[in-house]
Write a protein that binds this DNA or RNA. Structure first.
Lengths: 134, 134
DNA sequence: TATTGTTATACTCTATAACTATA
DNA sequence: TATAGTTATAGAGTATAACAATA
């Protein structure tokens, strides 16, 4: 049982996430927070449930995640006017600056991974193969 | 920040592990137990610490893992005669049969992943790229 | 009655520190 | 003193059920 796809996937992911964590120490965010902020930056005003579903995060856990980001002044929940049950989520001005800084560190991180892979062509190959698995 | 390697790695891993879990419901084992049993089958008599290190598992957690496998009668700890502090780990006869069954289910699982990827050539490509990341 | 967000909670994984028995 | 295995425990990450407000 030598060539276990799942086993190598896991070990590769551990390596990439470790590099991610070290890279983002200065900003003090974790992968889930990173991807939430990036998504909010792309699609401002999404409802919490939409956000959670898009990121594959449990809605109940999205609450805690957004609580943290809101406490740090990076995002803002606004009651929707059309459906007062739901909260639309936006970046604050500070949050927008924060996402800028995120982008710089993220490029460093991705560059290191691309170097490990051997180049952009290999990166694109890998991404294509991973998408087939998903 | 569209092409995040870590993000796709994680989602691919979640998919593969989900298929793994469903596949191995009949045997009632989890990925860590699977890889431990496979390793013990390959290298009988390894010490706990060697096993843990080889699999990237914390030695303290390896204790609990082996406790479970021993309680189910699949593995056996024997005090080493040369160093009585250490335990060498072996499959029982039942454990050897169990590993045979594991092998069958594992081939089903891997076959499904290879089909998703589009063939063995693509599988080999993926494994090569993952090894570069590790 | 169904849905959004929330709270509380529980389970798995992982990591660390302190202990024992042996070396 | 150092090491192998153990125990207890604490922190993430993830999942479910029950609830209030609103639809």
């Amino acid at each position: 049982m030598g060539t276990a796809i799942g086993y190598l996937l896991r070990r590769a992911q551990v390596q990439v996430f470790q590099d991610f964590s070290e890279t983002f120490v200065p900003l003090g965010i974790r992968p889930a927070e990173f991807s939430a902020l990036a998504r909010i930056a792309e699609c401002a005003g999404q409802r919490q449930t939409e956000l959670a579903e898009g990121l594959g995060i449990n809605p109940a856990n999205m609450v805690t995640l957004l609580d943290g980001l809101e406490r740090r002044g990076l995002v803002e929940r606004r009651k929707s006017e059309t459906d007062r049950r739901s909260h639309s989520v936006y970046l604050t001005d500070e949050g927008a600056k924060f996402v800028q800084q995120m982008g710089k560190l993220w490029r460093d991180h991705e560059t290191r991974q691309v170097e490990r892979l051997g180049g952009r062509a290999e990166r694109d190959q890998l991404l294509a193969l991973l998408k087939r698995l998903i």
